[in-house]
Computed example of a mutant assay.
Amino acid sequence: METSGSFAFFVAQCQGCTRVSVLWQAALTYLHAQGIKMVSYHSNDAQRPGSDHLGIVADGFPQDWVCHYIGDNLSKVDPIPQLAARVGRPFLWSRAADLEALTPAQLAYLQELSSSGLGDGLAMCAYGPGMRNAYVGLGFGGPAPDLSDTQIFELQCAVQICHLKYCELTEWRQASFDPLTKREREVLEWIAQGKSNSVIAEILGISRHTVDTLLRRLYEKLGVNDRTTAAIRGVGSGLVVV
């Protein structure tokens, strides 16, 4: 008989979940049993059960830190979620600066995190349908324990399973969710067809400056930095059909 803290029991719970609130509690119960003290879930539609879309849902973190992170827009300088998406494998928060060159603002954030008293944690990305990806932070509340590769992989699998189930339970919401305006979608469609900004401006009957502005908004909404990646993400997420 599987115990409540076992991976198999958690998988069975996720499979049978029909409500986000039940799924969230099942995830917390499992992760706490593995020694995780704090959990943060970051995605475009992250939602604590019964609330509006928040973008970030956290449990176990000190309230003053959560308020500081959200209120002072620390997500703008926190390099860990973006690193998790690029690296593709879990890593310790304390090792973030070793993965790639960071800006002074990003390094300052990591220093603040290190001195915050939160301890170390694991960073990982969860992948979903239609590019509904999410960053998940698992805090230890102290120094990182000596986890084996198998233990880390199991935590990663648990996070992935939970995220996929969340995507399934909220699929109806995504069907009516369009992050782009009509004009932004038009620009993205022409970008995906290889058109330059000046050509797009001529096609749409708008100024080159307006196209540049729309493109910057696209980059921000899609979380990309160049037109090629924007086109790939647009096609991959179903926002654009070419």
Score class of each variant (00 low, 15 high):
Met1Cys: 10
Met1Trp: 15
Ala46Met: 06
Ser237Ile: 00
Gly141Ser: 00
Leu138Asn: 07
Val39Ala: 01
Ser207Ala: 08
Leu188Cys: 01
Leu188Gly: 00
Gly137Gln: 07
Ala230Ser: 08
Glu2Val: 13
Cys167Trp: 04
Asp226Thr: 09
Ser51Glu: 12
Val11Asn: 08
His68Met: 13
Leu180Ser: 01
Glu184Val: 00
Asn133Lys: 01
Arg132Lys: 06
Gln47Val: 06
Gly119Thr: 11
Met38Val: 01
Gln174Trp: 13
Ala123Met: 12
Tyr135Lys: 09
Thr170Gly: 14
Ile200His: 04
Ile161Cys: 07
Val235Pro: 02
Ile36Ala: 02
Thr3His: 10
Phe7Val: 08
Gly142Pro: 04
Leu164Ile: 02
Leu83Cys: 06
Leu113Lys: 13
Leu54Phe: 09
Arg217Asp: 01
Gly88Lys: 02
Cys125Ile: 09
Phe177Asn: 11
Gly194Tyr: 10
Lys76Thr: 15
Thr181Glu: 10
Gln34Thr: 09
Asp146Ser: 08
Pro81Gln: 05
Glu184Phe: 00
Leu180Gln: 01
Gly205Pro: 03
Trp24Ile: 07
Arg173Cys: 14
Asp212Tyr: 12
Val240Gln: 00
Ala201Gly: 05
Val224Asn: 09
Gly194Ile: 09
Ile56Phe: 04
Leu239Gly: 02
Ser21Met: 10
Asn197Pro: 08
Glu154Gly: 07
Cys125Asn: 14
Asp146Ala: 06
Ala84Arg: 11
Gly205Leu: 03
Gln106Tyr: 03
Gln63Asp: 12
Glu112Ser: 14
Gln34Arg: 11
Ala85Tyr: 11
Ala27Arg: 12
Asn73Gln: 13
His42Trp: 13
Gly236Trp: 03
Pro81Ser: 06
Ala26Ile: 04
Asn44Gln: 15
Asp64Gly: 03
Asp120Asn: 10
Ile56Ala: 07
Asp52Lys: 08
Gly236Leu: 07
Thr228His: 13
Val224Lys: 10
Asp59Gly: 12
Gln193Lys: 01
Gln82Leu: 15
Asp98Gly: 13
Ala85Arg: 09
Val211Tyr: 03
Ser176Gln: 10
Ala26Lys: 03
Gly55Ala: 04
Arg216Phe: 10
Asn133Arg: 06
Phe61Gly: 01
Leu147Lys: 07
Ser176Asn: 08
Asp146Tyr: 08
Gly141Lys: 00
